[in-house]
């Protein structure tokens, strides 16, 4: 090399893709993450398909169980990858000073966040493929409009729950993050309108649950696949939640524990 370089940073695209690959591999190599991101959704889909749990809804909508189950399980995947996955990983990285160190390398804070976004999207794509394929085997049919409509919904859901996960990870201790996101995962999956539609909830409670971002994601995905319709209200709830959680992140996220 004859010319003197003024800096030694790799290009922004290289840095972000490297971080995205790194975070994706970290998720795929972590047993607990694999369980929450893949094993539980697969088990959930099988359970909902082979039990009569969803029959009341299936009868009400005039469709089969698996058609009710697949959108809910995809919503669960978003919750797993974005909220639990990134929340826990970021919480422990913060505790061990990794975020502080990374922020001193050319990757920096924005590169780290973009890398995490890449990892979440890659993981979601993998989950979509696995759950979609398994759904097909169980009798679900992916339609072109359904799939196309689901993409913006999944992106909004990922944005919303990733920013919520990062907000929790960046403000409380790592152990507390672990407890909060795991508890949230269980409660929201079961009662938060993710797997089960809220239309059989008591009339006083259903609108409250519907206002949660979890139910919004479930309802929006069910709208995309079952009705092949873009439900405006749930999407607005997701958008608003994503904006609020991102603002909270920007304001309160602490890079070192």
């Amino acid at each position: 090399m004859t010319q003197t370089r003024t800096h030694n940073a790799a290009s922004p695209v290289t840095r972000v893709l490297a971080q995205g690959l790194y975070e994706t591999l970290a998720m795929l190599k972590n047993g607990e993450q694999l369980m929450v991101n893949l094993a539980f959704p697969i088990m959930g889909l099988l359970a909902l398909n082979y039990t009569a749990f969803l029959d009341p809804w299936a009868e009400r909508y005039g469709i089969s169980r698996i058609d009710v189950a697949v959108p809910g399980v995809l919503a669960l995947c978003v919750l797993s990858t974005a909220l639990s996955g990134q929340g826990i990983a970021t919480g422990f990285d913060r505790r061990y000073g990794v975020l502080r160190f990374i922020s001193t390398t050319p990757l920096g804070k924005s590169g780290l966040i973009l890398g995490k976004v890449c990892a979440v999207l890659t993981m979601l794509a993998l989950q979509y493929f696995v759950i979609g394929a398994l759904g097909q085997l169980l009798g679900w049919t992916a339609t072109v409009p359904g799939v196309l409509l689901s993409l913006p919904t999944l992106l909004l859901g990922a944005a919303c729950f990733t920013s919520l996960g990062l907000f929790i990870a960046g403000t409380v201790r790592a152990e507390a993050t672990l407890a909060i996101v795991n508890m949230a995962w269980v409660l929201l999956a079961a009662l938060g309108g993710i797997l089960l539609p809220t239309d059989r909830y008591p009339a006083a409670i259903a609108p409250l649950v519907d206002a949660l971002p979890s139910a919004a994601l479930g309802n929006a995905l069910r709208g995309d696949y079952i009705y092949q319709d873009f439900f405006l209200i749930p999407h607005l709830i997701l958008l608003l939640s994503a904006l609020v959680f991102s603002a909270l992140c920007v304001r309160f996220f602490k890079w070192s524990a």
């Binding site: 940073a9 422990f92 990285d93 061990y96 000073g97 990794v98 160190f101 001193t104 050319p106």
Partner: peptide, 20 residues
């Protein structure tokens, strides 16, 4: 990032991811 690429920092607590 260009400026950060010219500075190397070894922090007191290491800042290394534990699982790697």
């Amino acid at each position: 990032p260009e400026l950060r690429s010219r500075v190397g920092i070894m922090l007191q607590d290491g800042g290394l991811p534990q699982h790697m």
